[in-house]
């Protein structure tokens, strides 16, 4: 597909096309994201799920064109509504889009602050970086957000990172992603350091803010319950590929990719009964998995047929708004 000729449609906030990200390591290149095509719809909450190492974080970092070394975007385009192709913008234009258009709470949000500077000063640094005129108003906004997230804002703003708990830091990270009114907000396991109750309340607030501000939210989590409760749509990743994508309810109740099915069956909370929880058989993908020409899931797949070993199944629209990458999508019982 040709990115220049494509006009991003009005429903789409971020359009990812032909995205490939590799990490160059001494053992060889790890294709952490492979051939990803994805439309993130405006105003919706999109959940991304998948095993550890399936490339979720890498995908969202690539959306901001901020993949850290030794990773690099090998090819692809990231059209962001109202901004342009992140891959083609100048460094300065990309920088200006961050925080103002795209806000990211990244996985290591607990260490996302300069240890030598008070939080309030770092909010001001953010404001200065993006040409905010009224810095007082910015601080007030930061304060309101922190208070909504259940923190003692005055204390937090005058504190240093080491004076805050892990959960407090994550909430400060969420504040940073929202304080400049980004329209697309990405939360990469942003609530992992919180206890169940705080997690529920923080996610509740995220949902409220999402609705109030008409945000587009991307939520990476390992918690299927969270996906079920919050996400409008869900994206399932396996070994750097999207294997299934669709409306949350449909995907969770009638998964079409054998991996999604296995994933859901592995979680008692969704299937209902702990005795029925079945762990996925086989081992997670490794370097050798990536090298083979066939479906990356074939080795663990109960439905694997000879054709699955020969070529990769493309992500196809099997119903309206429902994409699955499987040759045997219609063959299961």
């Amino acid at each position: 597909m040709n990115a220049e000729l494509q006009l991003i449609d009005a429903q789409t906030a971020v359009q990812v096309r032909g995205l490939n990200v590799v990490y160059e390591t001494t053992q060889g290149d790890i294709p952490a994201v492979q051939n990803v095509n994805l439309d993130i719809r405006k105003g919706q909450i999109t959940g991304i799920i998948g095993e550890s190492g399936s490339g979720k974080s890498t995908l969202v970092m690539a959306m901001m064109n901020a993949v850290a070394k030794p990773g690099r975007v090998a090819s692809g385009s990231i059209e962001v509504s109202g901004v342009g192709d992140m891959m083609k913008l100048s460094t300065e234009q990309q920088r200006r889009a961050r925080s103002t258009e795209l806000g990211l709470v990244f996985q290591a949000a607990q260490n996302s602050l300069n240890p030598l500077r008070r939080i309030g000063h770092q909010v001001l640094d953010l404001g200065r970086s993006h040409g905010v005129k009224d810095l007082r108003a910015l601080l007030r906004k930061a304060k309101d957000l922190l208070e909504r997230l259940g923190l003692d804002a005055d204390r937090v703003l005058t504190a240093y990172q080491h004076e805050l708990s892990g959960g407090m830091r994550q909430r400060v990270g969420i504040m940073f992603a929202l304080v400049l009114d980004a329209k697309v907000v990405i939360l990469d396991e942003a609530t992992t350091a919180l206890d169940m109750l705080s997690q529920a309340s923080v996610l509740q607030i995220v949902r409220e803010l999402h609705e109030e501000r008409g945000l587009t939210t991307i939520l990476i989590t390992h918690d299927m319950g969270v996906v079920g409760d919050l996400a409008d749509r869900v994206v399932v990743m396996y070994a750097g590929c999207i294997v299934e994508e669709g409306v949350t309810q449909e995907v969770l109740t009638s998964p079409k990719h054998p991996y999604t099915r296995g994933l859901i069956r592995a979680i008692p909370r969704i299937s209902g009964d702990i005795d029925k929880a079945v762990p996925l058989s086989g081992s997670p993908p490794d370097m050798n998995t990536y090298k083979q020409p066939g479906c990356l899931f074939a080795d663990r797949c109960p439905l694997a047929a000879p054709e699955c070993q020969q070529s990769r199944p493309p992500l196809l629209e099997v119903e309206t708004g429902r994409h699955v990458a499987c040759f045997r999508v219609n063959d299961h019982a």
């Binding site: 920088r95 200006r96 961050r98 290591a108 260490n111 996302s112 602050l113 953010l126 970086s129 993006h130």
Partner: peptide, 12 residues
């Protein structure tokens, strides 16, 4: 991580 975070936040 905080340097990466600063980059992701578009800090000058």
């Amino acid at each position: 991580d905080f340097i990466l975070a600063a980059e992701v936040r578009g800090i000058k």
